[in-house]
Write a protein that binds this DNA or RNA. Structure first.
Lengths: 193, 193
DNA sequence: GTCTATAGCTTGATAGAC
DNA sequence: GTCTATCAAGCTATAGAC
């Protein structure tokens, strides 16, 4: 295996950062949940908490980028891809008692004005998701500018809807936003032809 | 005066919670920035940090609800109100070096799974904003259900767009989302007639 | 090289002097 | 009643034993 201990650290911190945020999660708790000894954290992440945070966010970003690409490979309709992605979040929230929202959002807001390395990392993850969506929309015939704008719009709506659903403990905002976002995308594609 | 010291605590904590989050902001820093003596915090907020957090979020919620109502009183076009609200956020971010985003969002995500009192308080604030928007959309002739859904959708897009703009240090996501949200609202109002 | 034990700080909260 | 001084517990990071 490549390095099981490092992976266990990343798994634990991904789970905890997503639910409690970056500042609210201590390294002690992360090591305890990972099952690894305390000292090995600084062996695998010499940069301490910040390096662990950046690695965790980057990995979560790549993981969901793949989910997005997998959905894009299966579905034929881009609006349907969006609805599927929202639906995945509805299910993740229901399965986790509304704990598992976006793995990046909480850290992004915390770090935006307090930790430049972490902020930059979160920004790149959001940009990668936006790009994946924009590429799919271009394939539907939208002009590059229009595709990029619609992708930002869809991503913003998704992030906000997850926040509202998680805070209210109600899948409603995600469901409603999924439908209206899909409608906006269908309209945009239709009018571009 | 009613109580200047209490107000100063709330001002300081509102500013700090918005920028650094709840877990990332210590009571020591809040008292220091408020200029009040350490002991008086527990005089005004016997419930400690949690009570201060709830009071801060509730006050911020009421404040922006008023902003929304003021915009609604001035503008004739609901889509224009939305665009104005987005624009206010663009200006707040620019004026604060991308520090002042939504005063509730960061705390909402941090507290959603860790602090029930705070989560509930954030949920009520979001609900109050949604209601204010929905009332305005009903006044435009939308059916109650459609108005409520469009209000959730607009609020979600706004919250997500603030997050993306703040993280990327770029007003683009807010600008694009403002335009597309306004378009969706105009379309919904037009087709309902 | 691995990891335990601990240093040095900061946190939220309170006892007790005034 | 007001507030200072202090508390125990948590934090991140590291020195040094194996």
């Amino acid at each position: 295996m490549t390095d099981g201990t490092r992976e266990r650290f990343l798994d634990a911190s991904a789970r905890l950062f997503r639910r409690q945020g970056y500042a609210g999660t201590g390294l002690k708790l992360i090591t305890a949940e990972s099952g690894a000894p305390w000292g090995s954290l600084y062996h695998h992440f010499p940069g301490g908490k910040e390096e662990l945070g950046v690695a965790t966010i980057t990995r979560s970003g790549r993981r969901y980028e793949k989910v997005l690409h997998n959905l894009a490979a299966e579905a034929t309709d881009t609006a349907q891809i969006i609805e599927d992605y929202f639906q995945l979040s509805v299910e993740a929230l229901a399965a986790s008692d509304y704990a598992d929202g976006c793995p990046v959002a909480t850290v992004a807001l915390e770090a935006a004005s307090t930790n430049e390395a972490l902020r930059h990392c979160c920004a790149e993850v959001f940009a990668s998701w936006q790009l994946a969506l924009a590429e799919r929309l271009e394939a539907d015939g939208l002009a590059p500018d229009a595709a990029a704008e619609l992708a930002v719009f869809a991503l913003a709506t998704f992030e906000g809807a997850v926040m509202l659903s998680r805070t209210a403990r109600d899948p409603g905002p995600l469901r409603v936003s999924a439908r209206l976002t899909a409608r906006a995308i269908r309209t945009a594609i239709a009018t571009s032809r």
